[in-house]
Design a protein around this nucleic acid. Structure first.
Lengths: 206, 206
DNA sequence: TAGATTGTTAATCGATTAACAATC
DNA sequence: TAGATTGTTAATCGATTAACAATC
């Protein structure tokens, strides 16, 4: 029950379970089993039961799991039983796309602030937001109490911008810049790099 | 040496090493050690040496690794000592951004084909490409011998489109749709879902 | 009740780390 | 040579799987 004791590898699978459960719910299902869920996510039934058992007893012998209940509990565990405001920094193609991304709906996030340092972009509207001056990043992020940012700036300035985000109180960074950020242990970083994903596939090609 | 025997977890780290080495090379460095590289990528020196030893002996005792040589060898191992043509399917915001993404330069990939099913988009230009009709997907992908696709279509049609890509000879799919694709074991899939990345961070927040 | 499926334990499997001889 | 760092082995650590009593 003490989250300090739950291995990262287990935590990393919970959002995958939640996503699959929400798809089942959308399809009108109300019950599932570790067996069925395992097939949906490509993970063994035993592992799903073991993972969930870290957090409580959510199922019933004989009948499995009640989908709405399990969604509720996983949402609480992952702290997405609320909406987190998110800042996007860097309004190039990627920043533009993630700011307008509609895949966050019902998953706990909404973009509320967009920043760029380019005077040609500042003040322009994008997906309903006015692009803010990156000069005011620390002030604005702190004022809005934003804890999560998506970093879409060029690699050359990514570490600098990350430092300022952390200074402003950000505790999680989704990093689209192709380098590893150095951050205090209190800050979480998730890296998204499509070229890395591609190279993990070409290894297996002839 | 037999790639069947190299665990996926090791393969998945090689692109990270390669990216860090290319950054060091860009900075003018010609030599490094497992110690220094480990600090750059956040992995222990022992693990880096163990990982590399799966593929050969690339370093020298006392002096470490010659960066250009290690880049060359890792590029060969990952099969990015060539340029792979890539198809982007689905020209929404994400497809638009990845088609124009300049982060593939020097990393083994270039986008050569863009598809969409929307008559309003077909024929339009985007980042130097004319958007092709998704109706001709199988034919065009097969003709161009494309082996890698980035899937940027809505979740509702993602599995269908993936099936057609595989039919056309695609062997690797970078999947931006928020669901797990079911594919034959000969096909590799890498998933990119920003909401999953965010939920992996909020777990640790109060 | 009979069948199904959980939560958990023990066994297995695999990955990481520590240590060091080899050698540049 | 002396210092540094590799590649590799053995030890440790952690994650996954298999099995099953509990029970709905």
């Amino acid at each position: 029950m003490n989250k300090q004791n739950v291995p990262d590898v287990i935590v990393s699978r919970l959002p995958v379970y939640l996503r699959a459960l929400q798809r089942l719910a959308d399809a009108g299902e109300t019950a599932t089993s570790s067996q069925e869920l395992g097939e949906k996510v490509g993970i063994s039934a035993a592992q799903i039961r073991k993972d969930l058992s870290q957090f409580g007893e959510f199922g019933k012998q004989g009948t499995g799991y009640h989908i709405p209940f399990l969604i509720e509990r996983l949402s609480q565990i992952l702290h997405v039983d609320r909406i987190w405001d998110v800042a996007v920094v860097g309004m190039g193609d990627i920043g533009h796309a993630v700011a307008r991304y509609n895949g966050f709906a019902n998953r706990g996030f909404r973009v509320t602030h967009c920043f760029d340092a380019d005077p040609a972009k500042i003040g322009k509207e994008i997906g309903g937001f006015i692009i803010l001056d990156a000069k005011n990043l620390v002030e604005e992020v702190r004022k809005a109490e934003i804890k999560i940012a998506m970093l879409c700036v060029p690699a050359t300035v990514a570490q600098d911008v990350a430092d300022r985000l952390i200074e402003a109180g950000v505790r999680g960074i989704l990093n689209y810049a192709p380098l590893k950020l150095i951050v205090p242990s209190t800050v979480r970083v998730q890296h998204i790099d499509p070229a890395i994903g591609m190279q993990r596939m070409t290894y297996y090609f002839d």
